[in-house]
């Protein structure tokens, strides 16, 4: 058990220390490590349009490679990260961004799940508030005491283990 924990932890430590390799080919890598780091970061936020659930950093598709090189060229030419992103979205639209931008068209996407959660929590709170009110009023629900006949029947059930005819 402890051996497994040690192996698991060392794998975690090793994995966190290494940069993911992606699909970047050695010939694409920039000589300036700071620029290359920025290029990797931008590439990891851009969707490969050919294989739509990979980033261009991960994909071997021809278009992904072209876009990786394009991102690096723009950075070499002195563009900021935002300018590089704008260059790509001008041509391919917001769909290439793996993290969708916050604007009126995407409000539902960003806040829909939270709104549904709040709605559910509200409904649950109301349900419990109603039940407590009914209980304390004593006019129904769980707090209503048993009638005389019910008490008698309960006693006989507890004593005899059930009414005759209902036993298996």
């Amino acid at each position: 058990m402890r051996a497994w924990a040690v192996i698991f932890l060392s794998v975690l430590v090793l994995a966190s220390g290494t940069q993911r390799a992606g699909a970047v080919e050695p010939s694409e890598v920039l000589s300036d490590p700071a620029l290359e780091e920025r290029a990797r970061e931008i590439s990891q936020g851009l969707r490969c349009l050919v294989c739509q659930n990979q980033t261009i950093d991960d994909s071997n598709a021809g278009l992904a490679k072209d876009l990786r090189i394009l991102v690096r060229e723009r950075l070499m030419a002195g563009d900021s990260d935002q300018e590089v992103m704008a260059f790509i979205t001008d041509r391919y639209g917001d769909f290439v961004l793996l993290k969708p931008p916050l604007k009126t068209g995407t409000l539902l996407l960003w806040f829909g799940p939270g709104a549904i959660l709040l709605l559910g929590a509200g409904a649950l709170a109301r349900f419990y508030a109603n039940r407590r009110r009914q209980g304390s009023a004593g006019d129904g629900g769980a707090a209503k005491p048993l009638s005389e006949t019910e008490k008698k029947r309960l006693q006989s059930l507890l004593k005899n283990g059930g009414e005759k005819g209902n036993n298996p």
């Binding site: 349009l49 050919v50 021809g62 278009l63 072209d66 876009l67 394009l70 041509r91 391919y92 639209g93």
Partner: peptide
């Protein structure tokens, strides 16, 4: 030849 103009047109396939 290098696909750059296709990228300017937003071509992905």
């Amino acid at each position: 030849n290098d696909g750059r103009v296709s990228i300017d047109w937003g071509v992905y396939g």
